[in-house]
């Protein structure tokens, strides 16, 4: 079946058969990934969703408890604190990381000397093992008056020593800074790849029309990067809502104690699942997380559709 013949076909039956064949081709593309994904990831995930309405400790038989798990978590201070912290963390981290990553990508897409070096350096924090970089970071941002950062702040801006991750007032800020530092290289790489998709002729055309750098950015780069930005926003949001190990490493410190000023959703889920073995409650918590992220995704998704229809 060639494209030339299909154009002539008019009968409905033929059209249906064509559609079916097209769908089959499409499914054949998806199948290798989807089958593995459905069996090993989607299955357990659906199970976890059902588990949210059960009481289960991993060993004894399941017990249906209705919405009891949700009642429990929404009356748990620790859960509410984790929800609040996660939202605050995301509100700051998502836009800041996005802007810095995009700025860096554009900067490092120019023909400048040492470009490879700078690109690699930016990607470093993401690659390095968390145990190591968190230890470094904790040394620099130590609450001690003699710490590197505290000394710097005192000498440059006369700011008295801050307690960083050790104080309920500054712990979230410290985590946000760390996570931007660690992850911006990751999103920069995505943007860098996205920038390669932009047709250079568009810039040339804009240049002929007399557009300046800002206008080129606004009318060529931003719209052309829309699919990439969609991806970055969704992934950033999801990753922010799923933040866990960074918080554990920074706020947990040497005794692993995370109090209400720093607890995040996934840490709460982890605690319920593997310390208290309330797998039902853990699942209920992740269903809440899922609902929030799904809502954000759908809003973004319809935004992307509108763009595509323009």
């Amino acid at each position: 079946m060639t494209a030339a013949t299909t154009v002539k076909t008019t009968s409905v039956e033929e059209a249906n058969r064509r559609k079916l064949k097209q769908a089959l081709v499409a499914y054949s593309f998806i199948a290798p990934n989807f089958i593995g994904f459905a069996i090993f990831t989607l299955g357990p995930i659906i199970l976890a969703m059902i588990m949210a309405f059960m009481e289960w400790d991993g060993s004894n038989p399941w017990k249906f408890v209705g919405i009891q798990n949700f009642v429990t978590i929404f009356s748990d201070d620790r859960f509410l604190a984790s929800l609040k912290n996660t939202v605050i963390y995301s509100i700051f981290t998502v836009p800041l990381t996005l802007m810095i990553a995009l700025g860096l990508a554009i900067l490092l897409n120019q023909k400048i000397k040492g470009r490879n070096f700078f690109r690699t350096v930016t990607f470093f924090p993401y690659v390095a093992s968390l145990v190591a970089v968190a230890a470094v970071w904790n040394m620099l941002f130590t609450p001690a008056k003699g710490g590197v950062i505290n000394q710097l702040l005192l000498n440059l801006f006369h700011i008295p020593a801050l307690k960083w991750a050790a104080s309920p007032k500054t712990v979230l800020m410290t985590i946000i800074m760390f996570s931007i530092w660690k992850n911006m290289g990751y999103y920069m790489v995505i943007y860098l790849a996205g920038l390669q998709n932009i047709n250079t002729e568009l810039y040339e055309a804009a240049g002929l029309d007399g557009a300046n750098v800002w206008q080129k950015f606004k009318y060529v780069t931003v719209p052309q990067l829309k699919p990439t930005t969609f991806f970055v926003i969704i992934m950033l949001t999801i990753n922010c809502f799923k933040v866990y190990d960074i918080v554990y490493m920074l706020a947990g410190g040497s005794n692993g104690v995370i109090n209400k000023s720093a607890i995040v959703l996934v840490y709460y889920i982890y605690e319920e699942a593997f310390r208290n073995w309330n797998l039902g409650i853990a699942s209920a918590g992740s269903l809440v997380l899922f609902a929030i992220v799904l809502a954000i995704t759908i809003i973004q998704f319809s935004g992307e559709k509108n763009y595509a229809n323009d």
């Binding site: 990831t41 889920i269 992740s286």
Partner: peptide
């Protein structure tokens, strides 16, 4: 959408099953 949404489920909650 189903693909994307599942990324949001923390592994900790379905790790045991």
């Amino acid at each position: 959408l189903a693909y994307v949404a599942t990324i949001a489920i923390p592994w900790q909650s379905y790790m045991v099953p």
